[in-house]
Simulated scan of single mutants.
Amino acid sequence: MATINTVSQLNQAVNQKRDNTQLGKVVLVGAGPGDPDLLTVKALRLIQQADVIVYDRLVSNDIVALAPESTELVFVGKRAGHHCVPQEGINQILVEHALKGKLVVRLKGGDPFIFGRGGEELEALLPYQIPFEVVPGITAAAGCAAYAGIPLTHRDHAQSVQFITGHLKSEKEQIDWASLARSNHTLVFYMGLSQSGEIRRRLEANGMSPSTPVAIVERGTSKQQRVLPCSLQTLDIIAEHAQSPSLIIIGSVTQLTHKLSWFAPEKNIHDEYSEMRVAPIAKVAGL
């Protein structure tokens, strides 16, 4: 694929595109936490209609497989601590394909506007006046907690919930740990597995009890899902046995997983009924 290497070349390309044909479009699509059944109808329709799908590691293989064989798939391989394609390169891929008049689906795990850098990618389109849309997805905190039997809020346990990223843009940005350590709310750390020791130390230093219940949800909503209950004081020890992607949920609501857990990956009823559901979903989506 020919690449456009400079801002000047991109500007020339967009001006030529305006003179000749209509620009394409970029749609940020939330793929949800992994289970294809959690896709929205609009997300499924766009996956089926896309000329190009740009996706990363957090999008499950089952969801990528929903794309037609004619769709160009571009894997950009983002994961914690390493980008197969840097963010600037991803932005350029979106611009280049849209300038060719293509419908580009930027498929992101969870919701594109929750720790997905979706806003940054849309900002990169603005200088070229490329049209865009956003299709929300079920964010990992909601999906994984539900499949683990953990209500993020509960009248007897938590009156609020906070989503926190385990990775900051720069060392100068600081989390308000004193605020996080207060009682009666739930904390959900995205991409925090490698920082579990620091999370524990910071929360304990700001007054959170070492006995506070915690759950690590590994590969939530997938057939490989595991829920690892522990306490704050053992968080980093248990985290050594977990694999990415994982969420860390902290708060007394995590104790409810023992009573409310319903998802048994080894007896996944989705397999049994998947063929029965595909046709109705596709019909509703207009496929």
Rank of each mutant, 00 (worst) to 15 (best):
V74G: 01
L73Y: 03
N91L: 10
N20R: 11
S60T: 12
R79F: 04
A65N: 09
V54I: 14
I53K: 06
V26N: 08
Q16P: 06
E72A: 11
V85G: 08
V59F: 09
V104P: 01
D37V: 03
V85F: 13
G101L: 09
G101R: 07
V26D: 02
V104T: 02
V52L: 01
L103H: 05
R18F: 11
R106N: 11
D111E: 10
Q92C: 09
L46C: 06
A31C: 02
V26R: 11
G110T: 09
R18G: 11
L66T: 02
D19Q: 15
F75I: 02
H83F: 10
A43S: 13
L23W: 08
Y55G: 06
V27I: 15
E72S: 08
T21M: 12
T21D: 14
F113N: 09
Q16L: 15
V59T: 01
K78M: 08
N91Y: 11
V64R: 08
A67N: 01
A67R: 00
P36Q: 02
N20T: 15
L23G: 09
R45N: 13
Y55V: 04
G32W: 06
G24A: 11
V59K: 07
L107Q: 12
I93T: 14
V29I: 08
C84N: 09
I93W: 01
T71G: 00
S70L: 00
K102C: 03
L39S: 09
V54G: 10
I114G: 15
Q48S: 14
H82L: 07
I53S: 04
H82D: 13
H97V: 00
E69H: 13
A43Q: 08
Q49K: 13
V95W: 00
R18P: 00
I47T: 01
G32H: 06
Q48F: 02
P68R: 02
G32A: 07
D35I: 04
I63S: 06
Y55M: 00
L44W: 09
P68E: 05
L99C: 02
Q92I: 04
Q92R: 15
V26A: 05
F75D: 05
I90T: 02
A67E: 07
L94Y: 14
Q48M: 09
L94E: 11
A43G: 15
Y55K: 00
A13Y: 10
G34Q: 02
Q16N: 13
G109L: 06
H97A: 12
Q48N: 12
A98C: 01
H82M: 07
L103A: 04
Q12A: 14
K102G: 12
G110H: 05
G81M: 04
A31R: 02
Q16D: 14
S60K: 01
K100A: 15
P36H: 03
L107G: 12
Q12S: 12
I53Q: 01
V76A: 07
L66I: 03
D111H: 10
E69C: 08
Y55F: 13
G89K: 08
F75V: 02
G109C: 03
A80S: 15
